[in-house]
Amino acid sequence: MKKKRILIIEDDVFLLKLYSNKLKGEGFEVEKSLTGEEGINKISLRKPDLIILDLILPKKSGFEILSELKLNKETKNIPVIILTNLGQKSDIEKGLELGAKTYLVKTEFSVNELPNLVKEYLVKKK
């Protein structure tokens, strides 16, 4: 069976390594981007099955990326999981209103839950 492709857009190299290895260990194919702009370019070149998105990013914020994705009929149905340290209610509401499937705060989330969460939203997508 073809491996599902997950794109992680995260500017912290340590977290990028952590999330990426965790998902690879569960059999996913992982693409990584350190900036918002790079992330958008990668999506336009090859559509991932799911995106894990940080919000505070260089060059293009996670909110901007999400808005662009949702305006494009090619990308609007790609499930997006926001994984950030912005925990204000206004940010959470904005992220969900823009169409993210879920909004998680890094410090309140266990990385061990990530693979199941990704699987859950890949199933729901069908």
């Binding site: 977290l15 952590l18 260990g25 890094k106 410090t107 061990n112």
Partner: peptide, 22 residues
């Protein structure tokens, strides 16, 4: 405090995968 959150998330995550036996 906001600046502290990123390195703390990293430490927490790395410890979690070590404990999980990954």
């Amino acid at each position: 405090s906001h600046q502290f959150k990123s390195p703390l998330s990293v430490i927490k995550g790395y410890l979690e995968v070590l404990i999980a036996g990954d």
